[in-house]
Design a protein around this nucleic acid. Structure first.
Length: 222
DNA sequence: ACCCAGGTGGCCC
DNA sequence: GGGCCACATGGG
C-alpha cells in the first residue's frame, strides 16, 4: 500500500474533515501525555481541571506541587505516572527553550531526538507534539494506524529491524515519512482519516467492517 | 463483570 | 533483544 493512495481514497470518502483544531499549542503538548492509553474525553477533563486551577502554563506546570497536579489529572488515569511525565516535559521546555514557539524553531530531527530522550515521551507522544503543536512534518503512528495497517496486511513490505515495539514503530514511521511529502497539513489530515476510519469500521475485538471504504478500495485494485 | 482507551518504561532471562 | 507487566480512571 502506498500511503498517498490511502490518502486519496479516504479524502474521496470523507472530504475535508475538521478533526481537532486546538486553541492552544500547550493543550496539544499536555494532551500528548495525558492522552496516553486513555480516551480523549478523559484527557480533556484533566486539562480542564488544570485550567480551572490556573496552572495551565509551562512554568506553573513545571513547578507546581506534584500532589496538587496529581489530583487534577486524576480523571485521565495513571495520575501518578502522568504527573511525573508532564512535569518532566514542562521542565525540559522551560529550561531549554522557554516557550513553545521558540522550541518549534529547532530542526525537526534534533527536536524529535530531544523529546524522545525525555522519560515518559515515546515516539507517538513526540510525533503528536511535533505535528499537531509544532506543525512540523512528522507522521503519527498510533494504535489506530497500527491496527488498520495490520488488519489489511499492509505491513508485509514494512520490515522492522527486530520485534521490539519501538522497531515496529520506526519501520512504519519511516515508511510514511519516505512516501509522503513533508507537508504537515497533509499528514495531519491523513492521520485524522485513519482515526475516523478505525473508529467507524476497525474496532479491536468486534469487527464492524461493513461499509469500510478500504475494503472497497482493495477490491477495485486486485 | 467484563473489555477497552490516541503509550511508555522497567525488569528479567 | 524479546516477552511480560504495572500504571489507573472512566465509559460501554
Amino acid at each position: 500500500m502506498n500511503w498517498n493512495d490511502l490518502y486519496r481514497i479516504l479524502h474521496e470518502y470523507y472530504g475535508d474533515i475538521q478533526w481537532w483544531s486546538p486553541e492552544d499549542k500547550l493543550e496539544v503538548v499536555v494532551g500528548s501525555i495525558l492522552g496516553q492509553n486513555t480516551t480523549w474525553s478523559s484527557a480533556e477533563k484533566a486539562i480542564d481541571n488544570l485550567k480551572q486551577a490556573k496552572l495551565f502554563t509551562i512554568k506553573k506546570l513545571a513547578t507546581a506541587d506534584p500532589e496538587v497536579v496529581e489530583q487534577l489529572v486524576r480523571p485521565s488515569g495513571y495520575y501518578h505516572l502522568k504527573t511525573i511525565r508532564l512535569q518532566n516535559l514542562m521542565q525540559f521546555i522551560l529550561k531549554k527553550y522557554k516557550t513553545l514557539d521558540n522550541m518549534f524553531k529547532a530542526p525537526l530531527e534534533q527536536l524529535r531526538e530531544e523529546l524522545l530522550a525525555i522519560n515518559g515521551i515515546g515516539p507517538e507522544s513526540a510525533d503528536s507534539i511535533l505535528l499537531y503543536a509544532g506543525a512540523l512534518p512528522s507522521f503519527v503512528v498510533d494504535a489506530y494506524t497500527k491496527r488498520i495497517v495490520l488488519r489489511h496486511g499492509w505491513d508485509a513490505d514494512v520490515k522492522p529491524k527486530n520485534k521490539s515495539s519501538r522497531a515496529q514503530y520506526d519501520a512504519l514511521w519511516n515508511s510514511f515519512m519516505e512516501q509522503l511529502e513533508p507537508h504537515a497539513p497533509t499528514m495531519a489530515m491523513l492521520h485524522a482519516y485513519i482515526i475516523e476510519t478505525a473508529k467507524q469500521f476497525c474496532h479491536k475485538s468486534k469487527p464492524q467492517c461493513e461499509g469500510c471504504p478500504l475494503y472497497r478500495f482493495e477490491r477495485v485494485n486486485k
